[in-house]
Structures are given as C-alpha cells and as structure tokens.
C-alpha cells in the first residue's frame, strides 16, 4: 500500500511558535525585539507576555527573537568576534563617577555621538519609576547620565527601538545593548520587512555580558535581603569575590553570587556571545584594572567615534593589555562551550 504524501505544512514562524518554544518554556531573556511591533506582545514589570493569540502563522516577533534564532555556530572571527582595535580606557569627566559602570566609557561615547549629532536619539535601558528596567530614549548628555549604570536585568529596550522605528521620522538612532540585543539588531537589519533599521541605526554599542537577570527575580531576591528597589547601581566584581554588589538609596549591599546565579535567565545558557560581536563598539569591565573599561572597536564607525572622543580628551585610552585580552578570549571560549553543551543537551532531550 502506498500512502499519500503528507501535505506540505511549513512550521509556523510567528507568535504561536514563539510562545511554544521561547516564552512558555521560560527561555525569554527580555531583550524586547518582539515588543512594540504589535499589540499582542506586552511588557510589564520586566516580563514579556502575550495575553491573546494573534492568529497569524508568521511574524517579526519570531524572526527577530535571538533565542528563537539561536543555534548556528559562532562567528568565524574567533571567540570575541571582529576587532579593529582593542583598548582600555575610562572617561575623564567626573560627573560619571559612581554612576556609570566601570570607566563610564559607554555614557561618554553616547553623549558625544548625541552632541555631535551623529545620532539624534539613543535607545538605552534604565530603571523605571518603580525600579523595573525599561527601554528609554535619550537625546542629550543629561538623559545619558540619568540612564547610566547597569542593574543587570532585562528591560525589553528593543521594544522602544521598534516604537521609534515605527514613527514617521527619519532621524538617526544609537542603540546600547547586551549581546542578545545586538544579535536581534542583526536580524532586524537583515529582515526584508524592516528596511528602516538599516537606514536609521547609525551606532550600536554592545556590552560584555556576564550575567543577565529577570527583574522580578532580582526584586524578590532584594526583598529577601531587605534591599529597597529601585537600585541606583549594581556590579559583579571579578572572581573570586563571589558577590553581587548593589547600591540603593545611598546604601551599599552585597548579595551571595550563588543566589543570584540561581535566578538568572535560563535562556541565557544557550548564548555563545560574550562581547556583543555584532556591535560597532563593544565595552565591558577591564580585568585587573578596576575603574577602567575594555573597549573593542569593531567597525570603522566605532573606531572613528572612539578616536574623536580621545582626541577631545573625553576618554583616557591605552592599548589593551595582552593578558587582559587573553583573559577575555578565554572567558569567551568558555561561554561558547557552555552554550554548545546546553544546545546539545536540549537537542537530546
């Protein structure tokens, strides 16, 4: 007996599948790439949700999701991606001290890009009025300073980018994001239904990502330790510290790292990118030099901005130390291995 061939039924590539494979299994990392595109996906208090089925079998929400699109081998350029120049540096301006992360380089570069009108608005992540991180558009130095510093929790900032791109406007934009968000930006720029991303995104600053946390988990952990949200700043000091440092209302607290790890996004485990390989510039902590950043210039636009900042005396720059770079390489390799092992494990059940 010959069975008739099953009719060709392509797998859906829309919200239904995003729910089934990313959101419902708890793998969403709140990058926000699916937000702001339609009313079916909402973001509240640091978490993405879909109250109703959208009824379509394909959509940008799936196409842009870095967790959904994950799975290919890492970039060919080596563990930390393409690098035109590697530096270590810090901002010279003192208004950033105690607010920005490490050396304040990201804030200074963004402020400069806005002042120079290289971009007109920058999409960043900042704590909202009730402590939950959220996407924010800033357009000047004071806005950048207000958003400076990381609280290491997913804020859905790309939703704000999507809203900016949906507006009837053409001004250039900058984006600061984590590796997952930089990956999503790559998918946006390549998407046939999203031409304005190529035209309007002029500057992408990526962050090194050690750990990304769900806001509600952070909030509950803070509450358990008697810390009041919102946080003004948070930091992971390098090993072997084994702590998570948080500043809230002028007070400083330390939380045990294992408790923080326990609440981190499960979806991050499959991420192979430590250094935001698709950015113009990638910035992170400088190993062995507290108060300084490691800066990777990956594109000519990124290198140009860095040069301009140094030329204006806004940044103090030195070539990156080989030992520090080697440390970064090793960490990136380790992250790739962990991601590969995780993906393998998922494939086999």
């Amino acid at each position: 007996m010959v069975l008739p061939a099953a009719p060709f039924a392509p797998q859906p590539t829309g919200l239904e599948r995003l729910l089934a494979e990313v959101i419902n299994p708890g793998l969403c990392v709140a990058c926000g790439a699916c937000l702001g595109l339609c009313p079916h996906l909402i973001f509240l208090d640091g978490q993405v949700a879909a109250p109703d089925p959208c009824g379509l079998t394909s959509g940008r929400c799936w196409d842009l999701c870095p967790v959904a699109q994950r799975g290919g081998p890492g970039a060919a350029q080596g563990p930390i991606g393409p690098v035109l120049g590697a530096w270590q540096g810090r901002a010279t301006a003192r208004d950033l001290e105690g607010r920005a992360q490490y050396g304040g380089v990201v804030s200074e570069l963004l402020a400069l890009a806005l002042e120079q009108a290289l971009v007109q608005e920058a999409v960043v992540t900042a704590a909202g009025p009730r402590g939950a991180p959220q996407g924010l558009r800033v357009s000047g130095r004071s806005g950048v300073l207000g958003a400076a510093g990381s609280i290491y929790a997913g804020g859905g900032a790309l939703g704000e980018l999507n809203r900016a791109l949906a507006e009837d406007a053409c001004h250039p934009l900058a984006v600061v994001g984590l590796p997952c968000q930089i990956q999503a930006l790559g998918a946006m720029r390549a998407h046939p239904d999203y031409p304005q991303t190529l035209e309007r995104i002029h500057l992408v600053i990526g962050l090194f990502c050690t750990m990304n946390l769900p806001w509600r988990g952070v909030r509950d952990l803070l509450a358990r330790h008697g810390v009041q949200a919102p946080l003004s700043r948070a930091d992971f000091p390098p090993p072997p510290a084994g702590i998570f440092q948080v500043w809230s209302g002028g007070a400083y607290h330390e939380l045990p790292l294992d408790q923080v790890r326990a609440i981190s996004y499960p979806g991050c485990a499959g991420c192979a990118d430590l250094t935001s390989e698709g950015a113009d510039l990638s910035v992170g902590a400088c190993e062995g030099k507290p108060g300084w950043n490691t800066i990777l210039a990956r594109t000519h636009a990124g290198a140009g901005l860095l040069e301009l900042a140094a030329g204006k005396g806004l940044l103090e720059l030195e070539p990156a130390q080989p030992a520090s770079l080697e440390h970064l390489n090793q960490a990136a390799i380790a992250k790739r291995k962990r991601a590969a092992a995780w993906s393998e494990e998922r494939r086999h059940g």
Binding site: G14, L37, C38, P39, H40, D52, C54, G55, L56, S58, G59, R60, D193
Partner: peptide, 11 residues
C-alpha cells in the same frame, strides 16, 4: 497585517 491582525474587532 502582522502588527495588528484585527486587534480591535477580533480580540
């Protein structure tokens, strides 16, 4: 279209 799909009448 994607981005709505009859949100007001259907949902």
């Amino acid at each position: 279209d994607c981005g709505c799909h009859r949100f007001c009448t259907r949902v």
